[in-house]
Computed example of a mutant assay.
Amino acid sequence: MPAPTVSFEFFPPKSLQASFRLWDCVNTLAPLDPTFVSVTYGAGGTTRKLTHEAVEAIHTNTGLNVAAHLTCVDATKAETLDIADAYAKAGVKEIVALRGDAPKGDAKFTAHHEGFASSIDLIEALAETGKFNIRVGAYPEKHPEALDQAADIAFLKRKIDAGATSAITQFFFEAETFFRFRDLCVKAGIDAPIIPGILPIESWGGVQRFAQACGTHIPQVIRDGFANAEKTGTTELLATAIATELCDDLLQGGVDHLHFYTLNRPELTRDICHALGVTPNVRLQNVA
């Protein structure tokens, strides 16, 4: 079985120390020859400027194909499209188009009175420019605000029909969760690639909070495993094993591309990729 292609998500740094961590992450994972890397956009648009700076720096200094997250939050249509145009002028050709989370303290997303009302509106506007490959989010266990999974998948189809070329899923912990979702997407007429999002468990406490916030089910076997691993100091080994097994199950089921949420900590992602046969692409130069 051939090794999969991979992609990685980073988040923009908010301090000098965080900048060093980001660049360590980029330099560690770039040799794995990712198809693309993405840079997130903070809740409420809080990292808009930092995201733009990180995207341009990674693109300029590494030559990696960078996908910039772009949301509808707290900006007019003109401001949002100006950001997109600045990306295009910098040579960035990929956008991950999202509605975005509500600003901190707000109970729910409220569109700017001169802004895009939804991710579909944003996707349509970006598609009209003809400048970008547009990716979107997908939710194997449904978006927390969706009425049900059928409604959520219908909304995903509308995003694809609006001009998106692929979808990246929220993280999950069982391959069957992804396969059921993929089958439902096909049944709904979605023919764009659905890329599984993988979250290596760097912090067990943090993952539990993430999962609760986005409605991701954590199997009891994983909960029991970490309860034991914390007593024996083997959480990193367990995290590597869990993610590698999940990825292997996905590959056995026909998946050929994996997207890793790195949290700007590259070691687990690197080790999982190596276990899957994704190894550094070293080019020999000046060899006599």
Score class of each variant (00 low, 15 high):
residue 5 T to M: 08
residue 10 F to P: 05
residue 17 Q to H: 13
residue 17 Q to A: 15
residue 17 Q to R: 15
residue 18 A to I: 00
residue 21 R to D: 15
residue 26 V to Y: 00
residue 26 V to S: 04
residue 26 V to R: 00
residue 28 T to V: 08
residue 31 P to I: 07
residue 34 P to Y: 05
residue 38 S to F: 11
residue 39 V to S: 01
residue 50 L to K: 13
residue 51 T to V: 03
residue 52 H to K: 11
residue 52 H to R: 14
residue 52 H to T: 11
residue 53 E to H: 14
residue 57 A to K: 12
residue 57 A to F: 01
residue 60 T to K: 14
residue 64 L to A: 01
residue 67 A to W: 01
residue 67 A to P: 05
residue 72 C to G: 09
residue 74 D to R: 13
residue 75 A to K: 10
residue 76 T to L: 08
residue 76 T to V: 04
residue 78 A to G: 08
residue 81 L to V: 07
residue 82 D to E: 15
residue 83 I to H: 10
residue 88 A to L: 11
residue 92 V to I: 15
residue 95 I to Q: 05
residue 96 V to S: 02
residue 98 L to H: 07
residue 99 R to Q: 13
residue 100 G to E: 03
residue 103 P to Q: 05
residue 103 P to E: 10
residue 106 D to S: 12
residue 108 K to Q: 14
residue 108 K to E: 14
residue 108 K to P: 01
residue 109 F to L: 03
residue 112 H to M: 09
residue 114 E to D: 15
residue 115 G to K: 08
residue 115 G to F: 05
residue 115 G to V: 08
residue 119 S to G: 15
residue 120 I to V: 14
residue 121 D to K: 06
residue 122 L to F: 09
residue 126 L to K: 03
residue 128 E to C: 04
residue 129 T to A: 03
residue 133 N to Y: 12
residue 133 N to P: 00
residue 133 N to V: 13
residue 138 A to C: 11
residue 142 K to H: 12
residue 145 E to W: 04
residue 145 E to C: 06
residue 146 A to N: 06
residue 146 A to H: 08
residue 146 A to C: 10
residue 146 A to R: 06
residue 155 F to C: 13
residue 159 K to Q: 07
residue 159 K to S: 07
residue 163 G to H: 06
residue 165 T to M: 09
residue 168 I to G: 02
residue 169 T to H: 07
residue 171 F to R: 00
residue 171 F to N: 06
residue 172 F to W: 06
residue 175 A to I: 02
residue 175 A to Y: 02
residue 182 R to T: 05
residue 185 C to N: 08
residue 185 C to R: 06
residue 188 A to I: 05
residue 194 I to E: 05
residue 195 I to C: 08
residue 197 G to D: 08
residue 200 P to N: 09
residue 203 S to W: 03
residue 204 W to I: 12
residue 211 A to G: 07
residue 211 A to C: 15
residue 214 C to T: 14
residue 216 T to F: 00
residue 216 T to E: 02
residue 218 I to R: 06
residue 220 Q to Y: 10
residue 221 V to M: 05
residue 221 V to D: 14
residue 222 I to H: 09
residue 226 F to E: 04
residue 230 E to Q: 15
residue 234 T to M: 07
residue 235 T to E: 14
residue 240 T to E: 14
residue 242 I to E: 01
residue 245 E to R: 15
residue 245 E to V: 09
residue 246 L to N: 04
residue 247 C to W: 04
residue 249 D to R: 14
residue 250 L to A: 06
residue 254 G to F: 10
residue 259 H to F: 01
residue 260 F to G: 00
residue 260 F to M: 00
residue 260 F to Q: 00
residue 262 T to A: 01
residue 263 L to T: 01
residue 265 R to C: 09
residue 267 E to Y: 05
residue 269 T to G: 00
residue 271 D to S: 13
residue 271 D to W: 04
residue 273 C to M: 15
residue 274 H to N: 11
residue 274 H to C: 05
residue 277 G to Y: 10
residue 281 N to W: 07
residue 282 V to H: 08
